[in-house]
Amino acid sequence: MVLWRVPLDSEEIQTTIGIVHILEDRCKGCGFCIEFCPRQVLQFSKRFNTKGYHPPSVVKPGECVNCHYCEIICPEFAIYSVEDLTQSGHAAGPETEVS
């Protein structure tokens, strides 16, 4: 059950959509970006990079809101996001937050 209310202006507020770029060969697989992504956009991939770590991969490409948290917590300078200028979405209500 979702206990919080929907903001009245959630239909009007525009959210940005981000595109996540991963520099796979810099990744050391610490998992910080995967653990702390607010939208659970990332997941460990099955494949290895050249150093033998599992880099993250984007599993929900449309969900990224371009908050840059993965970019600033990554200790390896291996991930960053840029705004997708071709599309923008509405602020998500709690319906989409249910896990």
Binding site: D25, R26, F32, K51, I72, C74, P75
Partner: peptide, 13 residues
């Protein structure tokens, strides 16, 4: 880069 700091180390951040 990549730097010498271990996986999971916070110095990079």
């Amino acid at each position: 880069i990549p730097h010498i700091w271990c996986p999971g180390c916070g110095i990079g951040t």
